[in-house]
Structure formats: C-alpha cells, structure tokens
Design a protein around this nucleic acid. Structure first.
Length: 269
DNA sequence: ACACGTGTTATGCG
DNA sequence: TCGCATAACACGTG
C-alpha cells in the first residue's frame, strides 16, 4: 500500500495524535523489522522521552524526540501506523476501538503489530505490518534519498529525471533520483501525462518533463486528499480486460523497471 | 496449489 | 565505476 501519499497521511496522524506523549515502554522484539538493532536497543533509547516532530521524505518517516534519539519508520509494502488514544478516552486495539491513524480497526490486528511505543497515558503508537517488510530504526540514513517527489522544483526534476537513457517509469521509481513514487503512483502519473512508461528519458524534451512533473504533483495531491494511491483514476483499470477511462482503448500490461506496468494502448505514446 | 504483489537491497552483468 | 535488471526477502491473498 504505502507510497508517498499514504506515508504523508501516517506522518500527519503521528503529528496530530502522538507528539508530546511520554513513552513508558517499547516493544522492539521483532529484530527482523527493527534490524540492524538488537532487541531492547530501541527501547533503551526511547523510554522516558516524547516524540516532538514528525517528518517525511519520500516514503521514509522519522520522529525527533526531546532527547538525542531519532526514530525512523518505513512502512515497506504492507505497513500502517496505528495510534491509539489515551486509555481513559476509551477505545483500545483489542476492542477494535477508535483509531487515530491509518489502520485496520478490527480485532486480531495484534498478531501483526511489529513495533509498539506504549505511552504513559495507556495509549500507543504501533506499526502494523503483515509482511514484515517495514523497518524501524534509530537515526535513519536519508543520504541515499533524492528530493521529495512532492517538493522537487522544476529545474531539479528536469536534470535528475531527464539524465541517462532508462525507461521513464524506471526513473520515476528510483528513490535516489526522487523519493516517494511507487508502482501505482508511477502508472497513474504516466497515464495522466499520456506518456508510454517504456519511453527512455532521453526522448523526453523539457516540455515533456515539465508536464510529467505537473501530473506527478497533481496525482500525488489528489491521492493524499482522496485517501491513497489506490483511488487514482486509472488504478481500477489495471487488470486484464481493463479499458482506459478516458478513451476506452484496451489497457496494456508489461514489465517496466522490474514492476508490473499498465498503460493505455492508444493514448500513452 | 500456485502465482502475485502498493518496497528495498544485494548481486551480477555489460 | 556507473547504470540497469533481477533475485531475494516475508507472508497474506486471490
């Protein structure tokens, strides 16, 4: 699920609901998700502190604290952030009560909690992740990430995306070029821009690149507002027998940049 | 039973 | 060394 829009929603939920609550305990025992830390390492660093700010670049999320620790969170392929309110206000994870974050509000979810910050007020912040491809770590390294896809300016976009001769979709998915675009957002953006995902970037002129950036920003803002990348206009048509919602032509399927890719057989050239 | 997948990273090739 | 494609990771879902 999570691409830039979902991660931004999670960041906003943390900012709104989790900051300023003192951490009483931490469950970091899933060392696959919390690697490369050993069990207890993150706990030792965080107990007694409070989260002070929630930041995001691309799909990487991190929280500063009122101490030295910085808590990095990555949702991977299936991660979600769940923020439970203070115990006194009712609603708990076990009862499927009120959720402040983006979460499956149902019993049994506890089996998929891979990391938990337990607050002194009885509430919690949790990483719910069925596939365990999410990551939690202290002091996350952001150096390998390009500029955020929602923030990148026009000239930077032109030079970073337009360099080389890789297929344009592969370039959009490269987190070191720009951070935040995943498989669905790439397909939605290229469909909006009417560009064939297999086009190599050296065939794109400045106007093409400007259009691509414009549609990327529009698709991203729309996804945040509507509740996720899956709400994109072309997404439900990414299936066998699907048709372009603009022109009605058959949708094509292929592999580009190592990922399943769908595009309009007529409009995307 | 079997293939697939909204992400990242190690590995191998040219 | 650079850039790109592929496999592997874990595990639920169709």
């Amino acid at each position: 699920m999570p691409e830039l829009p979902e991660v931004e929603t999670a960041r906003a939920a943390i900012e709104r609901s989790a900051l300023g609550r003192r951490i009483a305990d931490v469950d970091d025992t899933d060392t696959f998700v919390c690697r490369p830390h050993s069990a207890g390492e993150i706990r030792s660093a965080l107990v007694g502190l409070t989260l002070t700010e929630a930041h995001r670049r691309g799909k990487t999320l991190w929280c500063t604290t009122d101490g030295d620790a910085v808590l990095g969170l990555h949702l991977g392929m299936s991660g979600r952030i769940v923020v439970d309110p203070p115990a006194a206000s009712g609603g708990s994870t076990d009862e499927g009560g009120d959720y402040w974050g983006d979460a499956p509000a149902r019993p049994g979810a506890a089996a998929w909690f891979r990391f938990t910050l337990l607050f002194e007020d009885g509430g919690a912040l949790r990483l719910h992740d069925k596939r365990r491809l999410g990551r939690v770590r202290l002091d996350p390294d952001l150096d390998a990430l390009g500029p955020d896809a929602a923030e990148i300016d026009r000239d930077t976009f032109r030079s970073r995306v337009g360099r080389g001769r890789t297929p344009v979709k592969a370039r959009l998915l490269d987190q070191s070029v720009l951070a935040g675009v995943g498989n669905l957002l790439a397909d939605e953006t290229l469909w909006r821009a009417r560009l064939d995902p297999r086009r190599t970037v050296d065939t794109l002129d400045a106007d093409d690149l400007d259009l691509l950036r414009r549609e990327l920003r529009a698709a991203t803002r729309r996804a945040i507002r509507q509740g996720g990348v899956h709400t994109g206009e072309v997404i439900e048509h990414r299936r066998a027998g699907g048709h372009c919602p603009r022109c009605g032509a058959e949708m094509m399927r292929g592999t580009v940049g190592g990922r399943t890719t769908w595009w309009c057989s007529v409009e995307q050239v």
